[in-house]
């Protein structure tokens, strides 16, 4: 826990927040949009890492909760006629509930089997959304979701995303550092021993899955704000794979690792997939390089580098 990278971290966090806050003053509209996408994708990856890196649960299809958060928000705004703000509650809560339900079904299985069953159930959710034209708009998705004025401008959307992401990250951080988080990390390291010290392992994981689903949903509803659209590919399994790569690439044992990974992947996706159709191929190569050369991710690597420097090595 004594982490040189994070020593005296509060000033850095504040500095980063100030920079992020001032970003729209000196960046073009497109880059502000991109920054918002990175933030919310990073939040989504961090919520995945809550159960993956800290909980040791093989959550292979996390994009489902991202998608449900987005659809929940968009459909609530369009169909209910109630205050659009309510959509931002309904989306994440729906994602949390689905996270709980899928968790209940999968939790009895261990590790890899958990992941496989989750992919199947997640794909089922995707198929329903994809086919149910009358309600979800099918593969067209939903466009032009009407938003409250204050967050409908590009800068408004950005500041809303920044605020909600910062708050959510803070809450997730507190949870990881709480007794709940300690128990969760214990389970990741050694479920048998955790059970033997009096932790109800399955229940603890189930609550963690619900929390992860909820914050995945928060990220999804932020996407509605930033992009004004939802579409079924938001919950396609390839996005789940990208989220896992973000965690591994950034460092799944560092709190900010997934956020860093999201930054790298989103930038690559934006610039590289414009040049080539082989995006999946490039993802595969990144995954391989990470596994071979950066087993603890970018932040894990930097952390070790800083420690070596600190020792004068």
């Amino acid at each position: 826990m004594k982490n040189p990278l994070l020593r005296g971290k509060l000033p850095w966090v504040i500095a980063a927040l100030i920079v992020l806050f001032l970003l729209p003053l000196f960046l073009d509209r497109f880059y502000v949009y991109l920054a918002a996408i990175i933030l919310l994708t990073g939040l989504c990856a961090t919520s995945l890492n809550f159960v993956l890196g800290y909980g040791g649960v093989f959550q292979f299809h996390h994009a489902v909760f991202y998608g449900i958060g987005a659809y929940g928000t968009a459909l609530m705004i369009i169909k209910s006629g109630l205050s659009p703000w309510l959509g931002f509650v309904v989306g994440p809560v729906a994602a949390g509930i689905v996270g709980f339900v899928i968790g209940v079904i999968c939790i009895r299985l261990s590790k890899l089997y958990f992941g496989m069953l989750q992919i199947s159930l997640g794909s089922l959710v995707w198929a329903i959304v994809y086919r149910w034209y009358s309600f979800t708009g099918g593969d067209d998705g939903i466009h032009g979701v009407p938003l409250p004025d204050i967050i409908s401008s590009p800068n408004g959307a950005y500041y809303f995303t920044l605020t909600v992401t910062a708050l959510s990250m803070f809450v997730l951080y507190r949870m990881i550092r709480s007794p709940f988080g300690s128990a969760l990390q214990g389970i990741r390291d050694n479920p048998v021993r955790s059970e033997m010290i009096g932790v109800n392992v399955k229940l603890q994981q189930l609550i963690a899955l619900t929390i992860a689903g909820f914050f995945g949903g928060v990220a999804g509803s932020l996407f509605v704000v930033v992009d004004n659209t939802v579409f079924p590919d938001m919950m396609f399994w390839t996005l789940s794979l990208e989220l896992i790569i973000m965690c591994l690439l950034g460092g799944w044992f560092s709190f900010l690792g997934p956020m860093v990974g999201a930054g790298i992947i989103v930038l690559l996706r934006t610039y590289v997939s414009g040049l080539t159709v082989y995006w999946a191929f490039i993802l595969g190569i990144i995954m391989m390089l990470v596994i071979f050369f950066l087993p603890n991710g970018v932040l894990g690597y930097l952390d070790r580098f800083v420690k070596k420097k600190a020792r004068g090595g």
Binding site: R174, M175, R177, S178, P179, F180, G181, V199, Q204, I207
Partner: peptide, 8 residues
């Protein structure tokens, strides 16, 4: 272990 917000 159900305490989500106090710092460990």
């Amino acid at each position: 272990t159900w305490n989500l917000f106090a710092p460990s």
